[in-house]
Write a protein that binds this DNA or RNA. Structure first.
Length: 810
RNA sequence: GCUGGUGUGGCGGAACUGGCAUACGCGCCGGUCUCAAAAACCGGUCCCCUUACGGGGUUGUGGGUUCGAUUCCCACCACCAGCACCA
């Protein structure tokens, strides 16, 4: 066969057609091979399309899937669309088209671009969160939660984004601004659907232990859940009229109870009005007013402590002492009981507050005296603590809690930072919450046979700004009989947050077309996800919600595992050195996007795949370099050339030199794949080609085959084409991943670095099985090295076989 | 402030459990081919001294452990990310 030049424009469309025509990437339930489920975080199909940064997140899992396939697994590698959410709605407002129409268009474009990646997606299992056949099951899950008291509606102050005109969850507020639009978030009292994720706090925490996830993500989730062990203690507050009210606090340091010199309530605490004395009324009201008007950003920014005295006193249960009750915004209504005992000697915030308002500071822990300087937050012997004086703090904690329990004044308790999940949105483009409000029955779930509750067409998508969803304006949709009693009722008009559909989509891929159940028996066998790949920006919320949904579905018997994602890998972003000279995130608004379509045109999909891997360690952000792709493109051309010129003239007996290169390549690629060091895999291929092209003799057939199969996950079109051209039947993906023989990965002749007193003085070539004495005498005989040994005595000799000889002389 | 991460040539980066630092690629310099250019190919490219032979230094800074440290320990600096009064 005459040599032809590498032409990506000819081979890439050809093989994509072939794979598609032969339905090679469809995962079949009845395939007898063991399963492997590799999942990409599904994209939101935005109007701006994919840039090279998105590509990066899809290339790695595709290489991994193809590798698993060559290893003999039946691989499920699906793709779908997280298509609800406000951008589609904003777009609809802007362009005057329905969100569903714009979404469909974007999906088409995304799908075209994703096909350019050459990935082995199983499009027969495509899911779309906005498809009624899909969100039927999102609503079904909500109904199951509602029936089990995990979904409830309540009035609560929520974060309100004045720009999006909608309530948003704590999770969507980043540094006091709306995650989506960047507007400063305010508070607003609204009736909201909530999910009791807090009931799963402990399981969400302990479940992390068994997961093969980056430590960083586990730590972030642990901190987010924020478990604290301590005690609830009941103080007795004396109101202005002399009446007594139990006042419960949470503390992690019951051992410091004797050091409580005052108490602090959150300004919103319900007891505040009853406790405030007439004299203090004005000051307290003024403070509450001020606290309410401040945004969270302002609160976070200030360092000094503020507050007001209520005029009331409380009785400390351990010693009967009366201490003043203050209010301050450093105590939060949303955590613990909204009230604390203040121990200024042993808590930094209490200390600062006490200093500001000149309150008593009493030390109860530690053997030294440090009142004047700072709070001591460590452990030590207890003092000034009645019967407990002298106990180590850790022991005292337990004993005081035991005593409080015996007196009915307190109990051991665990607190979490995690809050219930605000699940309502007053927006159009989301799943309708399947509830009907009835004057007699209250909120009633829509019958399961009547799901899905379809999103009706409306004319106005604009958020109303009144706190009601645009759905509220459609009276023929809103008015519906109560599913329980049949009397006139009204549909819930709030929709679900974008997180809803993405909290369980990975389950649906297993049986995407099942109509009578969320997941079929056959489908269950694909689960759980073996490898989950996506950006670290979803480290907390998406992953936490998905785990919560999965645990719930486990509890009601839908799935038989609690943790959905066994292994997680977080990809870094692609950055671009902009005009500022600094690395910027690639985004359309910055005008720095590199369009992959052009690169595919000029260099080919395989070149772009390789460069996306070669650009840097996959878990770190990487800088885009426009010239970088040329290097990998040249490599492909050289590799093509090497195979082509020797094609059909294979060596009968392979040279040892070549065997060594082959076995090293297979070893390096395999080992680096297992730890996902993709950038160094590309280097390994380049080193291999550099080495073999220096050998004029033709290679043996087996070496070329091993090279092509090893290349197949990374440059699949390239590998398929050369596989066929070297006289094989397609497809190369029916081959087995090559193995290496350790005997060939170490050379028979070793280069030993010789150091004198730790400094490199030369290298010698020795037989790999030489003894230490043989190596040492060879080193001494070497002219270069010998110069440093003249007239010296060798004090010590260190030999690392095959690597280094260090002689200590004087 | 707390928690975690990162720091290696002009640039992206490599170095498995402590063993020849700078692999691989980009860029740059020189050469071959060409009327010329592009492409391709060959050679060079951490810094300093030396015509050369050769020598000295170098993984953010300063210490330590070790025959030997990019790797382990301590302190510090810079940058990045997450959290931010969580009792």
């Amino acid at each position: 066969m005459s040599e032809e030049l590498y032409s990506h424009t000819e081979i890439e469309p050809k093989w994509r057609e072939y794979w598609k025509a032969n339905r090679l990437h469809e995962a079949r339930d009845d395939d007898p091979r063991p399963k492997y489920y590799c999942l990409d975080m599904f994209p939101y199909p935005s109007g701006s399309g994919l840039h090279v940064g998105h590509w990066r997140s899809y290339v790695l899992p595709d290489c991994w899937s193809r590798y698993k396939w060559l290893q003999g697994f039946k691989v499920l590698h699906p793709m779908g669309w997280d298509a609800f959410g406000s951008p589609a709605e904003n777009d609809a407002i802007l362009k005057g088209i329905q969100p569903s129409v714009g979404t469909r268009r974007n999906i088409e474009n995304f799908k075209r671009q994703l096909n350019e990646i050459g990935a082995m997606y199983d499009w027969s299992r495509e899911v779309n969160t906005t498809d009624p056949d899909y969100y039927k099951w999102t609503q079904w899950i909500f109904v199951q939660m509602f029936k089990r008291d995990l979904a409830y509606k309540t009035y609560m102050p929520i974060n309100w984004c004045p720009s999006c005109k909608t309530g948003i969850s704590n999770e969507d507020v980043v540094n006091g601004v709306c995650e989506r639009c960047g507007t400063t978030v305010t508070k607003r009292e609204m009736n909201q659907w909530m999910l009791r994720i807090t009931r799963y706090a402990d399981r969400l925490l302990t479940g992390l232990d068994q997961l093969d996830w980056p430590q960083k993500v586990k730590t972030m989730q642990t901190n987010w859940i924020g478990r604290s062990e301590g005690a609830h203690v009941t103080f007795s507050a004396i109101a202005a009229d002399g009446s007594r009210h139990p006042l419960e606090i949470f503390t992690t340091r019951p051992d410091t109870l004797f050091g409580a010199t005052y108490m602090v309530l959150a300004p919103e605490h319900p007891l505040v009005p009853q406790l405030t004395t007439p004299e203090q009324q004005a000051a307290v009201n003024a403070y509450i007013q001020k606290a309410r008007s401040e945004s969270d950003v302002d609160r976070a920014a200030k360092t000094e402590k503020t507050g007001a005295f209520t005029g009331a006193m409380a009785i400390n249960p351990v010693n009967g002492e009366q201490i003043p009750i203050w209010i301050s915004d450093y105590v939060l209504m949303g955590y613990g009981t909204g009230a604390i005992m203040a121990v200024p000697a042993h808590d930094e915030r209490d200390y600062a507050f006490a200093k500001t308002f000149d309150l008593e500071i009493r030390e109860v822990i530690g053997s030294t005296d440090g009142v004047g300087k700072e709070a001591y937050t460590g452990d030590g012997p207890m003092k000034n603590s009645g019967a407990f004086t002298g106990r180590p703090a850790a022991q005292g904690r337990k004993e005081i809690v035991a005593w409080l329990e015996s007196q009915g004044l307190g109990r051991a308790a665990i607190q979490y930072k995690l809050r219930d999940w605000v699940f309502s949105r007053q927006r159009y483009w989301g799943e309708p919450i399947p509830i009907v409000h009835c004057a007699d029955c209250g909120p009633v779930a829509v019958d399961e046979k009547d799901l899905p509750v379809r999103l009706p067409a409306v004319e106005q998508y604009q958020p109303t700004g009144t706190g009601e969803s645009p759905l509220a304006a459609i009276s023929e949709w809103v008015n519906t009989p109560c599913p329980r009693c049949g009397k006139p009722g009204k549909r819930e008009t709030d929709t679900m947050p974008q997180w809803a559909g993405s909290s369980w989509y990975f389950l649906r891929y297993a049986s995407p077309h099942a109509t009578d159940r969320l997941i079929t028996e056959e489908g269950r066998k694909w689960l759980p996800v073996d490898m989950y790949v996506g950006g670290v920006e979803h480290a907390i919320l998406h992953l936490l919600y998905a785990r919560f949904f999965t645990m719930f579905l486990f509890d009601i018997g839908v799935v038989d595992f609690e943790e959905p994602f066994k292994r997680l890998f977080n990809q870094g972003m692609i950055t671009y050195i902009g005009k500022s000279g600094k690395a910027e995130k690639m985004s359309k608004s910055k005008g720095n996007v590199v369009n992959p379509d052009d690169l595919v045109q000029d260099y080919g999909c395989d070149s772009l795949r390789l460069y996306e891997l070669f650009v840097g360690p996959p878990e770190l952000d990487a800088e885009w370099n426009d010239k970088g792709i040329e290097g990998v493109h040249r490599f492909l051309k050289r590799a093509w050339h090497w195979v082509s010129i020797h094609n059909g003239k294979w060596a009968e007996a392979p040279m040892r030199e070549l065997l060594i290169e082959r076995h090293r390549l297979v070893k390096n690629v395999t080992e680096r794949l297992e730890s996902l060091r993709m950038n160094t895999i590309v280097s390994a291929f380049m080193e291999f080609i550099n080495a073999v092209t220096a050998i004029p003799e033709p290679p043996d057939r087996e070496t070329v085959e091993a090279f092509l199969i090893a290349m197949a996950p990374f440059a699949p079109h390239f590998a398929e084409e050369l596989w066929q051209r070297t006289g094989h039947q397609p497809t190369i993906f029916h081959q087995k991943w090559p193995v290496w023989d350790e005997a060939y990965t170490t050379a028979t002749v070793a280069e030993i670095a010789v150091q004198i007193n730790g400094k490199l003085r030369g290298t010698i070539r020795v037989e790999a099985d030489s003894t230490e004495d043989q190596v040492a005498s060879m080193a001494a005989a070497d002219a270069q090295i010998g110069r440093y040994l003249d007239g010296k005595t060798i004090r010590k000799r260190v030999y690392v076989p095959g690597r280094i000889l260090n002689l200590i002389v004087s």
